[in-house]
Write a protein that binds this DNA or RNA. Sequence first.
RNA 1: GCGCCCUUCGUCUAUCGGUUAGGACGACAGCCUUUCACGUUGUAAAGACGGGUUCGACUCCCGUAGGGCGCGCCA
Length: 476
Amino acid sequence: MSSAESPVTRFAPSPTGFLHIGGARTALFNWAYARGHKGKMLLRIEDTDRERSNPAAVDAILDGLKWLGLEWDGEAISQYSRMQRHAEVAHELLKAGKAYHCYCSPEELAAMREKAEAEKRPIRYDGTWRDRDPSTAPAGVKPVIRFKSPQEGETVIHDNAQGRVVIPNKDLDDLIILRSDGNPTYNLSVVVDDHDMGVTHIIRGVDHLTNAARQTQIYLAMGWQVPNMTHVPLIHGPDGAKLSKRHGALGVEAYRAMGYLPAALRNYLARLGWSHGDDEIFSTQQLVEWFSLEGINKSPARFDFVKLENLNGHYIRHMPDAELLADFLAFLPHVEGGPELLAKIDDTMKAKLLAAMPGLKERAKTLVELKASAAYLFAQRPLAIDDKAKALLNDEGKAALKALHPLLAAAPEWAAHPLEAIVKAHAEATGIKLGKFAQPLRAALTGTSTSPGIFDVLAVLGREEALGRIGDQMAT
RNA sequence: GCGCCCUUCGUCUAUCGGUUAGGACGACAGCCUUUCACGUUGUAAAGACGGGUUCGACUCCCGUAGGGCGCGCCA
């Protein structure tokens, strides 16, 4: 196999819910490795559990991957559609004497487990039918096929992240590979699919480490080459325990709705369990160039929203205005109140948004915040004034507005710098601090006490609207 | 219970036997300043514990403690 030449990785989610953050990182690693080595990343939907799988989840996963910018190669493969082939392999194993029929009922097995637990013994299938004569089989019972796992020695997993992991074979019991209804089980399906799909590198969560041992045994039994394996540590919540919904076990679409940029999320996720020296902020291109399996850590990482937010703010600030505007518009359908806002955005408003973007993006960590601070652009006269802004519009504040209004109205050019010069000149002439004029202006122009630079606000709003808003507050 | 794995500032991490243990987020303080931010300067902050091996251990070995994952006719 020429795996060194062009590796084939795969991302294999089961469609029982959204694409959660751990899955997203696994996909990112698979994607980065494939892209960085002129390989392919395949996508396989592990939908063999008909009870729990659903088409909506498939859509959510595909949508999540696309949003994150992780395009897979070829068509997504349904594992369910390949069940015949899996069963075929199970029978091949049976024929070769590497698997056998087991007639134990689910009830018997449950009892076996309970007994083992009560006696504080390892919970394993006891091998009842491993060597028993099939002619002693109870009538009318449909058997399962169990894999004849080696009972002695050990199974070794050569893992890029975990190192050489040795599992004693005595701890691996004879797993069911084909159910009594003739359907294959997970570990068999995975091996057959990965083999048939030509997967050379498996990158997945460490929760699959024990499966890796069982799968290795199946590869060996079939005489197939065991793929290169990497088991990445899991992502934990801020408290070190399992990721809960409160924390970050959300679908990536939730991150989209929270106003995170795909590029920022990619960067953040890449740094969770992987590093390239001291590099913190890097482009996706750099990630692809730098990503290596050897750089993956063994210990779990905690998900830190604060750091994600910081990174996201960095990406927002450094993104070209037009590009950010496009992302912002694409984000709106996914956030509360966004569609309504989107409906109000015509070409004129787009131009305003674009003009306001330099001031807006400087103080937004998320697109949600960007949306909030852009609210002044959409506000209708007379503006709603919040409490802090009201306090600024006291007698002193109103007096400042009254003094400013005619001066601004007489401005020959309605742009930030000339307007700033006018206000500054007036402040100097009267010996009053600039803030005494800027804050009332802010209150009148935006209805709030915080906003982008006030002269930019003035400029973006336009002469008529700005003077109107100032006039509204002078009058009251 | 059994097996596997993990343990460096609060968090993400660098270090691959010899460093004043570095960076980033966060925190705190200063500067900048029309608000909020940005930016900038600085400060505090770590090798779980106990034994070895070694001239020398964060780094290698053993043990202890704590934590994670796995142990389905789920994937």
